[in-house]
């Protein structure tokens, strides 16, 4: 079991700077998405569907796995410039 930190951005910011989740070793981004959704208010579920998880280098595929102490980020649709 690992403690995964998810940094929150954009419309997820009202929930705080980050969220710490317990996930089993070998969990995938798809597994993280399910656990993360359980912690969200229902009005953010639709936003989560179009959001992606990332580390500091790359946006991660749903099948990607991560270390048991990973520090990731949830990225809603972007609007920079």
């Amino acid at each position: 079991m690992g403690k995964i930190t998810v940094q929150l951005f954009g419309a997820f910011r009202p929930l705080g700077e980050e969220m710490v989740l317990d996930l089993p070793d070998g969990a995938s981004i798809g597994d993280l998405r399910i656990t993360f959704q359980e912690k969200l208010p229902s009005d953010l579920h639709e936003l989560l569907e179009v959001s992606r998880f990332a580390d500091e280098r790359v946006v991660l595929a749903e099948t990607a796995t991560f270390s048991s102490d990973a520090r990731l980020a949830i990225l809603p649709p972007v609007s920079g410039g």
């Binding site: 954009g10 959001s51 992606r52 790359v58 946006v59 595929a61 809603p76 649709p77 972007v78 609007s79």
Partner: peptide
């Protein structure tokens, strides 16, 4: 928050 473009996954 302004609605934006959904990001692509790696690859």
């Amino acid at each position: 928050w302004v609605q934006g473009h959904a990001l692509c996954q790696h690859g």
